[in-house]
Design a protein around this nucleic acid. Sequence first.
DNA 1: CGTATCTTTGAGCTTCATCAATAGAAGTGG
DNA 2: CCACTTCTATTGATGAAGCTCAAAGATACG
Lengths: 248, 248
Amino acid sequence: MHVQVPDSVSTLGPCGGCAHCLTCEARSRSICSVISPEHSARLARYSHRLSVPQGRSFIEEGQPAEDFFIVTSGHAKLFSLMPDGRRQITGFANTGQFLGLASGKTYAFSAEALDALTLCRFSRSGLSTLRRDFPALENRLMEEASRELVQAQSRMLLLGRKTARERLASFLVEQHHLQSGLDHRPPSDRTLTLPMSRTDIADYLGLTIETVSRTLNALQREHLIVIRFVTLITLLDLAALEAMARGD
Amino acid sequence: MHVQVPDSVSTLGPCGGCAHCLTCEARSRSICSVISPEHSARLARYSHRLSVPQGRSFIEEGQPAEDFFIVTSGHAKLFSLMPDGRRQITGFANTGQFLGLASGKTYAFSAEALDALTLCRFSRSGLSTLRRDFPALENRLMEEASRELVQAQSRMLLLGRKTARERLASFLVEQHHLQSGLDHRPPSDRTLTLPMSRTDIADYLGLTIETVSRTLNALQREHLIVIRFVTLITLLDLAALEAMARGD
DNA sequence: CGTATCTTTGAGCTTCATCAATAGAAGTGG
DNA sequence: CCACTTCTATTGATGAAGCTCAAAGATACG
């Protein structure tokens, strides 16, 4: 299976801005807005901006892992497939997240754009040079790897031991925390805009779409959430959802 | 919940040897046997050897993550608990593996010795100094984080999408690969010595002990394995088990 | 050698998956 | 703007994989 990056994944030219983000030590996941012209010029040599349309795949599991990416806008899903088509979404990537850290010689997952997506691409072979040029990058990489490992462990607990209700509650709370971190939303806003389909949620939580649908409607019947629209959900009782997510 | 390292986890003094392993770039997970006296002396300042008896816990989830460890002999299990006692083992650690990379300010998991365990302990606060002193360590850390992330993703697929049979097959094949990598065993030996109990296997695979027991016996009835003893299993048809593990 | 712990085996049940039908949303072309 | 198709989501009926409860059999240990 030989897969090229499709034509519609267009290169937009060098990117100094998001490369700066790479070396930013701030805990915030948002892209740093301030960037020195000197940094920008040096980093532009390493990075390229990419634009990926909705539904387009840009990483194929098993392909040589030549690049790694940082999401600069939009959302992506990362997943593994089994021969018979069973799918597990191992994570969603939002603005500021790294893609491709978890790879050996080949990618361990596929990645697809959930909506209009822009990326910053780096060559993995150039990574050692990049790390020498920007020592602060080391910390950023370790921090990100650490964060992803912690997340992976809580997802193993979810997939291995939680009930369908607990999984959905965990998912909703997680999305809430992700979205409440965005700067353009008031922190009191408890309405989620989900960028993914029911199928994606099911494949993320290790359930079927039917169970996702039924369980969400059960949570609505119990006045824990309101499903305003398929992709628009308001959390009525965040504390109860958090308790349910923890399993107590 | 305030937990101290128990008395029976004894400090054995400085460790230059396993610290050397830290900076070793070899892909092999075994401890490097060759170590320069100069390295040894410098590294002894950072590291301490620990001995942990079977069954003893030495990392508690939620405690401040002050140290990280490298296993120098024996086996450990890493796990998360839910309030009602449900448990998910997120991984087993063998000789050469890092413990505590996946941590923020507090540990994200608990860890317990499966048998007599020796560790090399490093202070996380001293990690930045250590990294400055041993630049090769950076690569080793990233390599290890990468490996663990890839492994975490394949475990999400297992926990989210595989059947009980597929989980057991995956587990057996994984153990085979781990154990066939050890230098004191002939590569043709297909008999596993499992260091963990049925309960541990169940909590690792997201199943109950009854299902683990029944499924293993089913595999034996189909002449794929022989259960010579509770902890001693021979793989009769490795290819079939690998196919089953993949899900085809 | 007796007790405690772990593992196996059996019977019944629950949760979630599967299969199937309907309803709703989104896009297409006349 | 409306039929028509297509895709996605919801809802219902049924079934099976794996869990729970229970008891017997092994194994470890003092």
